[in-house]
Design a binder for these strands. Structure first.
Lengths: 219, 219
DNA sequence: GATAAAATGTGATAAATGCAACAAAGATAA
DNA sequence: TTATCTTTGTTGCATTTATCACATTTTATC
């Protein structure tokens, strides 16, 4: 359960006062849980229509296929949502899980309940729906950005596309990658060493400057 | 503007009666437009925070990069939403546009208005927010499915992943592709002839049966 | 500070994929 | 109907990418 201070900064309960918050917790069967780094917060093979809202910390949605190859499908930060009804399991053999990268607080709520008319007519139910709409719109945007990157035909184009997105996001042609180069390779769904080679070529052709995770776009 | 009959089947105004619908049209500055096949409904270079809801017909969200390579980012059917705030343009040089495949009706509404508290306190404003939440959740699911496919490392894995998704969607291991093989190559972001070769291998190894757009999963 | 673990950087070689070009089959329009 | 355009199917060859293997650096842990 959130303290009054934490409620202020909560992405999903923003604008809702403490009394209503308490009432809604039971209304939505909300449960908050805390996790330590490396802990698995959510396994998508679990049944249920719950949606998790990452209140604090960083986590990743990981897919592990039948051959054991693991891929980062999403990187989650505070305010991001996840859940079975927001994912798509193309393959029954794959396992999908949310792994905490840092200590995390997650609030689980019953998603179908949000889409239904509230019988108890919570005063702020509709505000929560709007907040949820905002969060899921953000998620859709993030996913669209990923599709934009992954739909490029070569490692070079994927890298440049991703770098341009980051530059736009940071408002500067110089920026620091939010994760390791190994994870970047994963993010653009290519082999790490092949990506490193391409990075070198981009550097040699003076299309980018790059040392470690510091990138500068020169084109 | 929708007729009373059309209102019944409208994905976004579902559950809203005709009088309220009329009131809300002005409240949301909603505009409906019709398009003929091949017509460009929406160019993302256009300014504004409008969101389009495809009320009728089929359309595609196409990205054309600086080299003229075009890629289908999304296939839109009735009930799907699109808009600048739901996309991500990684590259300023790219153009993004919604091209109608058939005759289409599109309803444009002001998206930020939805997220704000309604000053006029429309009786059914909150219902519309819930409907929008449902539509955008669907969109997030669709995008997650696409990421699932595109993040696979080989053409083979992409094809199998896509086929499994379709099989699950149709509830049968035999299904018909919703678009041409050329467009499928585009969808999985690979070269068409390379994809055809891989399809042949899958057929030879008896992992699938395929003639034209009829696919049967055998694994 | 020592040690282990993870991340970075590089290269040789094999495998997968893209490209270009063409023919045949189907679909569409005049 | 013919003529035209799109889709499907196939190939040889060039290019890109993955695999594997290793050395080096950085980061985390005790």
């Amino acid at each position: 359960m959130l303290s009054k201070e934490e409620l202020e900064g909560s992405p999903i309960f923003e604008g809702i006062n403490y009394e209503n918050y308490l009432a809604m917790l039971s209304c939505f069967q909300a449960v908050q849980k805390s996790y330590r780094p490396e802990e698995v917060a959510y396994d998508f093979s679990r049944v249920g229509e719950q949606v998790g809202i990452l209140e604090r910390g960083e986590a990743s949605l990981i897919r592990i296929d039948e051959d054991g190859v693991s891929t980062v499908l999403e990187n989650l930060t505070a305010g991001n949502v996840f859940g079975r009804s927001l994912a798509f399991s193309g393959d029954v053999n794959d396992s999908l899980e949310v792994v905490c990268r840092t200590a995390c607080d997650v609030l689980y709520i019953d998603f179908p309940h949000i889409l239904k008319r509230c019988e108890k007519a919570c005063e702020h139910h509709s505000l929560l729906v709007r907040n949820m709409l905002r969060l899921i719109t953000e998620k859709a945007q993030t996913l669209a950005g990923r599709v934009d990157v992954l739909s490029r035909r070569s490692i070079r184009d994927k890298l440049l596309c991703y770098f341009r997105q980051q530059a736009e996001r940071e408002g500067s042609d110089t920026f620091t990658l939010p994760f390791s180069l190994s994870m970047l390779a994963d993010y653009i769904a290519t082999d790490r060493s092949a990506m490193m080679r391409e990075l070198k070529h981009l550097r040699q052709e003076k299309l980018i400057q790059a040392e470690g995770r510091e990138i500068t776009l020169l084109c």
